[in-house]
Design a binder for these strands. Structure first.
Length: 352
DNA sequence: AACAGTATCAACCGCACCAAT
DNA sequence: GATTGGTGCGGTTGATACTGT
């Protein structure tokens, strides 16, 4: 292994920001002699810098073909899509963006894109929805479901639970919308009359989609939110018991009125959007087909204000209904390592 | 106006890989 | 095969700019 050139730096070598004079010396030298041989370059150029520092200054700043200024929409799309495939391979991503350095892309990702993804509720590492938000969303949703079920489904029957709803199953899997090359999960639901509850199963599927990434849109994201919504409840026993399996369990529950009192905006959001699909009885137009529900405002779930309200509501619920435990909702662990490449459209809506 | 908190990004650091010796 | 120099890469730091109070 070669050792780092700067680790054995001699006394007197300068560090820190480059001056105009240093830039000029480095540029002059490289214009005359070319770059390379970075270890001997500083001496020859009259610079009190280590070779590595000179190389970085050249490649990240002084190179004539460097494009400076704000990233374009196209560049940002490229970064997000490549990151979904390549991960933090900044140099590989930079190879697809002429004039941009890996360092610049890395900084832009960490300071802009990553934060925006987090605000959207998307894990920037796996490109999948964050479970901490989804889980609360699903639990709150389930409470609305309970109250609606009490009003509209006096007797429990196989097939009428949330995942017994064929529209929901189609929406939850939505595999024809998902991006190519990635695995997804299919959710199946079976009613167990002995235990008076549903058993929901995740089945992993590998498939190829004919839809390119750029065709993915808000409805894709909504479908995946619903998929994760179901997956969360399946993998979390506590949440599952509330949301899917036993609608009439005698456990502390949030009533719709209570939830509205705690969080009117969130309740309104749930009623107006995704849950209209899940539980048509709560919507204005019951029994509509899947395509009749465009989920037009699903992006509002990624609004920072709503996110704050979700967290605040969770705290309020913790305080007011002590037995209604959310468990550990702070995890951002994804249920699967499957990337989600449908993020760029949503980013676009949040920009500027 | 002053201060604190936050965002940005150039530069640095440490490690890994590769080729030459 | 071991050593060494050169370079690339990703993560982190810290100075500066910006924003809010």
């Amino acid at each position: 292994m070669g050792k780092s050139p700067c680790r054995d730096e001699r006394e007197g070598l300068k560090k820190g920001p480059w001056t105009v004079e240093e830039d000029r010396k480095l540029l002059d030298y490289i214009q005359k002699h070319g770059h390379g041989r970075w270890r001997i370059l500083p001496n020859n150029a009259g610079l009190k810098r280590c070779g590595k520092s000179c190389r970085l200054r050249w490649t990240n700043y002084l190179r004539p073909d460097i494009k400076r200024g704000r990233f374009s929409f196209e560049e940002e799309d490229t970064i997000i899509q490549l990151h979904g495939v390549l991960g933090n391979k900044w140099s590989a991503i930079a190879a697809h963006l002429p004039g941009r350095t890996d360092n610049e892309i890395k900084n832009y990702w960490n300071t802009h894109i990553r934060k925006r993804l987090l605000r959207m509720g998307i894990d920037p590492v796996t490109h999948t929805p964050r479970l901490d938000l989804l889980e609360l969303y699903s639990i709150l949703s389930s409470s609305l479901y309970h109250s609606s079920q009490l009003n509209n489904f006096p007797s429990q029957q196989p097939g009428v639970g949330p995942l017994g709803n064929p529209n929901l199953q189609g929406l939850a899997t939505a595999d024809h919308l998902l991006s190519p090359q990635y695995k997804t999960t299919e959710i199946t639901s079976q009613y167990d009359p002995q235990q008076n509850q549903y058993h929901n199963t995740l089945v992993s599927n590998q498939f190829q989609s004919s839809h390119p990434i750029h065709e993915l849109n808000t409805s894709t994201y909504a479908a995946q939110v619903n998929q994760l919504h179901s997956a969360v409840q399946e993998t979390r026993p506590c949440a599952a018991s509330h949301a899917l399996s036993t609608p009439f369990r005698r456990e502390p529950q949030l009533t719709q009125a209570k939830l509205e009192q705690l969080s009117p905006n969130l309740t309104n959001f749930i009623r107006q959007n995704a849950l209209t699909n899940l539980w048509p009885s709560m919507g204005d137009q019951p029994n509509l087909a899947r395509n009749d529900f465009p989920l037009q405002n699903v992006d509002s779930i990624i609004d920072p204000q709503l996110e704050n309200e979700i967290l605040q509501t969770r705290n309020n619920i913790d305080q007011q209904i002590p037995n209604y435990s959310f468990g550990s909702l702070t995890t951002t662990t994804s249920p699967s390592p499957t990337p989600l490449s449908s993020t760029t459209g949503h980013l676009r809506q949040l920009q500027h």
